[in-house]
Design a protein around this nucleic acid. Structure first.
Lengths: 204, 204
DNA sequence: ATCCTATATGTAAGCATTTACTCACTTAAA
DNA sequence: TTTAAGTGAGTAAATGCTTACATATAGGAT
C-alpha cells in the first residue's frame, strides 16, 4: 500500500534518454567551464548518476563528442540546407538562414566552443573531417543563397562571395562572446535581424 | 682553442629569453593541439628542456597564460588604440585597424583560440576580467572610429554601431577557422583588404 | 493478477596513466 | 665563489575507464 509512496531518486531510464541527458550535460559543461574542464566525474555529478553509469550509454568520452558532432551535422546543417534550397527569394532565405543559425546556437550554447576548439587539433582524423565538413557546408550553402541573389539581380554581382561567407562564419562566435560577457542574456530575434540588415546592405 | 667548437645543446639562457620561448611554445601548442592538450610535459619537450626547468621561469602553468594575456593587452590593444586615436581619416583608420588585427593574430596563431576558450570558464576571476577588458576595448575602439566617421559625414548616421562592432569581433575567428582548414596558408594583406571593403560598404 | 527470469541500468571501489608541481642535487656563467 | 639555470626522480591528485556486484524493469508462463 505504501510501497509506491516513496520515489526512488535513482529511477532507471532507457539508454536513449540517458544519452540525450549526457550530451546535453556535456554541452552545458563546455559552455560554463570549458572543454578542458570536461571530466567524466563532473559529468556524472551534474546528471546525478555514478561515473560508471555513463559508460553504460557511451563506450568512451570521445564517442559522446562524436555523437554530438553528428547531431550538429544532421540538425543544424540539415536545417540550413532546407532553408538554402527553398523556393523563397534570396533575401528571405538569407534572413532565415541567419535566424536559424542564431537560434540553434543559443539553444545549444556549448556547440560553438566545441566545434571551434575541437577543430584545432588533429588527434582524431575522423572527427576533424566531420568538423571540416560542417564548416564547409555552412560556407557552401550561404554562397549558394548569395549567388542566387546575384543571378536574380537583387544583389550586386561584384560582391566577393567568398569573403561574405567568411564574415558570416564569425557571427556565431561574436554571438558566443556576447553570451559569455552578458551571462547568457541576449535578444535572439533582434540580434538576427540586425545581422541580416548589415549583410543585406553589404550585398547591395 | 677547440673549446668553443662544440656547442652545448643545453646552453643556459637568461630567464627573460626562456619566458619568451615558453610563451611562444604555449601559443604554438594551443594552435596545433588545442588548449586541453597543453601540458607542461609537452611544453618542455617542444622547447627542448626538462619539465622542472619551466618552473624556474614561471611559478605555475596558469601564470604563463596570464602573462600572455597581459602581452595581448599591451601589444595588441595598445596597437589598436594608437590606430583608433590617430589623426587619419576614419576609413583609413578602419583599414589599418583591420589589417593590424589580422597581422597580429596570424603572427600569434594560438591567441584567438586562447582568448576565446579561456573566456568561457569562470575558474579564474582575475583572468576573466582581463579577457573581458580585451574584448570590450576592441569594441570600444572600433566604435570610436565608426562614430568619428559618421560625425565627419563619410558614413551613414543610421548605421547600428554596436552591431557592426559585433560583426568585427567575429573576423579573427573566421580567420582562425580558415587558417586551420587551410593549414596556415592565407594571404594576410589580401584578406584584410577584402574585409575593409565589406565593412566600408556596410557603413555607407 | 502473480511469479519467474533475462536483461538493461545502476553503483562503489579500484586500476593504470597523466597531470602540475617539488626537491635534492649539479653545473654553467657572471 | 656566488648565483641563476638546469636535471631526473618523485609526489599527490585527477583522469578515463573497468570490474564485480546489485536491482529495477519488461515480458512471458502460470
Amino acid at each position: 500500500m505504501f510501497a509506491n509512496v516513496y520515489l526512488h531518486n535513482n529511477m532507471r531510464k532507457p539508454t536513449e534518454i540517458r544519452q540525450e541527458q549526457i550530451k546535453q550535460a556535456v554541452l552545458d559543461i563546455i559552455f560554463t567551464d570549458g572543454l578542458k574542464n570536461l571530466s567524466t566525474r563532473m559529468l556524472a555529478q551534474r546528471i546525478g548518476m555514478s561515473e560508471g553509469a555513463i559508460f553504460r550509454h557511451f563506450p568512451t568520452k570521445q564517442h559522446i563528442i562524436v555523437d554530438i558532432v553528428n547531431d550538429v551535422h544532421k540538425d543544424f546543417i540539415g536545417g540550413l540546407r532546407k532553408i538554402a534550397l527553398s523556393k523563397q527569394n534570396p533575401p528571405k532565405r538569407l534572413e532565415e538562414f541567419l535566424c536559424f543559425t542564431i537560434k540553434y546556437l543559443t539553444d545549444n550554447k556549448g556547440i560553438t566552443l566545441l566545434l571551434f576548439s575541437e577543430a584545432s587539433h588533429n588527434n582524431d582524423v575522423q572527427l576533424k573531417q566531420a568538423l571540416t565538413q560542417i564548416f564547409n557546408s555552412q560556407k557552401k550553402l550561404l554562397s549558394k543563397i548569395i549567388l542566387d541573389g546575384i543571378a536574380e539581380g537583387v544583389w550586386d554581382e561584384s560582391v566577393p562571395v567568398e569573403s561574405v561567407a567568411m564574415l558570416y562564419m564569425g557571427i556565431p562566435v561574436s554571438l558566443n562572446i556576447e553570451l559569455i560577457l552578458n551571462s547568457g542574456l541576449i535578444d535572439s530575434s533582434n540580434f538576427c535581424n540586425k545581422m541580416f540588415q548589415l549583410m543585406n546592405k553589404m550585398l547591395k
